[in-house]
Design a binder for these strands. Structure first.
Lengths: 219, 219
DNA sequence: CACCGTACTATACACTGTACGTTATGAGGA
DNA sequence: TCCTCATAACGTACAGTGTATAGTACGGTG
């Protein structure tokens, strides 16, 4: 037969590469991740990966879609605001559990089967709630970008806090700000440090958005 | 006197390096930016930059703060929702005008004099509107992460659309999705493509947030 | 068995950020 | 005026990166 599926000769496969890449991202950190590292881990030359992925970005896409596959389906025993909340929260939780997902989601367009599944879930909720196509799409984009922005920021700040050198410098520069020039920043410094993440912070913004949606509820 | 300010001998200075780095980021693209490129543009060895910045990240921070200095002050002839809108919109506009700013804002903590100035503006608005310290800080973080997430996404998608190869592949994979498995995604594909950016999309999400804030308006 | 597509290897290139050691220039004190 | 010394800038080098190109060896099909 002319077009035959690729017949891996040995141990290699897309799934294996994706799993190994994910492991490395989570153990060594996303920045330290490299194709050569994956290849070495698999005991294979760097170019072997190019049989399965055209470049690094395609591997990123595959890892991202793999992670999106871990998201649960939309719960059915909820009203639509509860369903929206559930989808947004579980995406955030997945990002916290796999910090590399933040980097994988920003900087690349959405594609892949599992990613489409997640979008389908949220869009379906909004459509059955009665939102018209345009509003449903706008809401989907708004919710997604909020979760992405808020959680990426949360992860980033948590990582910064873990590096004691960077954290110390940040605190000292914060405290060296003139209280005359920046009264609010200086006054709210403790609150600002406390609101760089956490469930409450995330839910606060999410509830603001849901409040706005409730006002626009159709029918 | 023992501790003297650094006396640049020749043409180099922090400001010149920052300006040159910014130019290169905007002309060659953020990804193609490199310390060696800046050094070459300045007709200087790569290591010369290390006299002024301890590493690449510190240069990033300096460029970011330089860009934040371009943001206008909060307008006085508005009520507080109008002021919040103005701050968020002008940050988005600055990000659109200098796409590198998106990358500079995500992935690094906020620091620097001009960055503090911007935070002071928004926090001041929220405090005078009567929000308590914690709510003001939460709101600041929420608004900032929304603007960052939404605008980064917008910029990213616009860049993707500019690459015809990537755009074509994205459309084809979108259209190859099973309408049986993903009815909403397939049905809303045109709307989704249209809502990846633009003033209306940004303002839609911003108004959702403002709606939520209005409900929580103090006093 | 002979063939051919293809999974994988080997080599190489053009880069990257930056650690280390050296040079030479300018300002301050004698 | 000369000496001294801190330091701006240089040169070299290293350990990496992604990936283009060419070659090799194996497995299923004729």
């Amino acid at each position: 037969m002319g077009h035959m599926a690729r017949t891996p000769r040995n141990t290699l496969s897309s799934e294996l590469i994706v799993r190994t890449a994910l492991e490395l991202m989570e153990s060594k950190g996303t920045d330290a991740f490299s194709l050569r590292g994956v290849a070495a881990e698999l005991g294979v030359g760097p170019m072997a990966l190019y049989t399965y992925f055209r470049n690094k970005d395609e591997l990123y896409d595959a890892v991202r879609d793999h992670l999106m596959g871990l998201l649960p389906d939309v719960p059915r025993d909820e009203d639509w605001p509860g369903q929206v909340r559930a989808v947004c929260r579980s995406l955030r939780l997945l990002m916290l559990q796999h910090p590399c997902l933040a980097q994988l989601l920003s900087g690349r367009p959405l594609s892949g089967h599992e990613t489409a599944r997640v979008a389908e879930g949220l869009l379906g909720v909004l459509r059955s709630a009665g939102f018209d196509p345009e509003t449903a799409a706008r809401t989907h984009t708004t919710l997604f970008t909020y979760v992405l922005g808020a959680t990426s920021w949360e992860i980033q700040m948590a990582a910064e806090r873990r590096d004691p050198e960077a954290w110390r410098r940040l605190r000292t520069t914060m405290e060296s700000l003139s209280a005359r020039e920046f009264p609010s920043v200086v006054e709210l410094a403790p609150e600002l440090a406390r609101t760089t993440g956490g469930d409450e912070q995330f839910d606060y913004g999410l509830e603001l958005l849901l409040e706005g949606l409730r006002v626009r509820t159709p029918s």
